[in-house]
Amino acid sequence: MISILNKLIPAETNLPWLAKVTMLLILVLLPFILSSYGLSLLTKVLIFGLFAMSLDILVGFTGLVSFNHASFFGVAAYTVGILVNRGFENFWLLLIPGIAIALLLAGLLGLLILRSSGAYFLMITLAFGQMLFALAWKWRSLTGGDDDGLPGIGRPEIGLPISMWNEQNFYFLVLILFIGSFLLIKKVIKSPFGKSIVGTRENELRMQSLGYNTWLIKYISYIIAAGFAALAGILYTYFNGFISPQELDWSMSGYILLMVIIGGAGTLVGPVVGAAVIIILQNLISTYTELWPLFMGLIFILCVLFARDGIVGSLLKLYQKKVGEMK
């Protein structure tokens, strides 16, 4: 059983260690080469990469296409934003309520949402996502509503004599949390629990007959995914120094879903690549033409035609084929 499941998880872990070290080195060295605007884009890519990775736990590994992932992102962002505006400063302490509220919310919503599957799952997640969006929009006294938003959040206070207003320092904070989360998610995916998630995706009935509680498996993975989305949301709050209800909107969930699909669902690295491609392209193209949505659309069509498994997914397949041929 386990050996079959191993095959179902794409073999990105089999990449040579040299490739991994190079990637890490690039991420560490890039801020010294890039312009300050490039650095701000790169920081955004990492934050959204983390966000997309967390959604990948659901979409890629658990096989649940969720349309309210932005809720956890946004709720955590608002929690931290509101607390900062009330005078709480320590970043590490603020992480606790931010993530806890998202976990709690996921625990509650999961009870309701996971009763359905397929298209109904998608619709009910959309419904709950929009409800929270409306709440943020209308609850003006707490969230500032749509017009004002929640400005003036500034940068995190991490308890060290390092100023996070320096873009490079902030980038490294994001990078450390990003890599930590990446390793953690990977650990979860490779654990027996991770295998059971994939098993549930592939054949829920069979897993049930093997004695697994598949509902609980999905429930836990939903909560885990929410936790990492919350971390991304908190970082994004500090990155922008500002939150608006837009961060909870379904379009945000859709945006992240696109990143996962373009990069390659179920690969973990893929969503990060997807985030990079979408954010950088969108910023580049919209600088040149007002018709940028047209070109983004064309790129998506291209991806669907030529890279069904996403960019990373397709490359991995190619790589595996090559390795297989060599053997």
Partner: peptide
């Protein structure tokens, strides 16, 4: 951010939505 950090503009003119104005202010 792009205009200021990358293009190094000297000033910005525009902005229609208030939410954008508040987001840009800080």
């Amino acid at each position: 951010k792009k205009l200021v950090l990358s293009d190094k503009v000297d000033l910005i003119i525009g902005i229609v939505s208030s939410s954008v104005a508040y987001a840009v202010k800080d």
